[in-house]
Amino acid sequence: MILDLHAHSIKSDDGRAKVQNYCQWIKTRNIPIDGFVLTEHRQFDNESDYSDLAAKHGITILKGSEVETEYGHVLVFGVTQALQEAFDFTNIHLALADVIAACNAHGAVAVPCHPGRKRVGMAAHLEEHGVPSGVNIVEVFNGGSRGEEDQVAQEMANEQNYLGIGGSDAHIVSHIGRCATKFEDTIHNEQELVDALKAGRFEAIKLQQEAS
């Protein structure tokens, strides 16, 4: 099963894509993914229910978040009400250690994203802050990467023995599915996604070599 683990909708401040148009795009263009995870910036979207849309199109639509720490941006999968009460998702100065501790306490997974990117990626902060403990997975393929950013991410993952996921980081409709993650398991919900990530049964894949 292939999921794009990093996408934004109009719920994010810089997102311009409506979720129904992501679905329409995937089907019309035969994008070879089975679903995607909406990782809205600095929030968890408690309001939206995409189950009817998912059923209509036969696409798995899950929800996560993208929060901000001193090591850059971090995807969070398996968000629960208890996790939302454990730290302030809107805080742009979160401590990565606190995010990881909260995720571990509440059955979620934290994954630093676009780690090869300047300023908002983890690799840029290793010299200042050191290698953080508790990171097991990083995003090695990001659809918005420029230049050598994915290479930097991959090299850091190799050096630190991290597993790698892929996500498009789509903010507009036509960018969904540029990168994704291939799972051995079939995933129906956020809990199964967390289980598969913790089990390490996945690999990052690039579905488009060049941005459209």
């Binding site: 148009n21 795009w25 420029r146 230049g147 409709v173 036509s174 960018h175 941005a211």
Partner: peptide, 26 residues
């Protein structure tokens, strides 16, 4: 990326890409 045939409103994804295919503006 979206067509409303009743109103005539159309949404278009926009990108400015460089020679390497990188998105500079979307």
């Amino acid at each position: 990326t979206d067509v409303d045939e009743d109103t005539g409103e159309v949404e278009i994804d926009l990108t400015v890409t460089n020679e390497a295919g990188e998105n500079r503006v979307f």
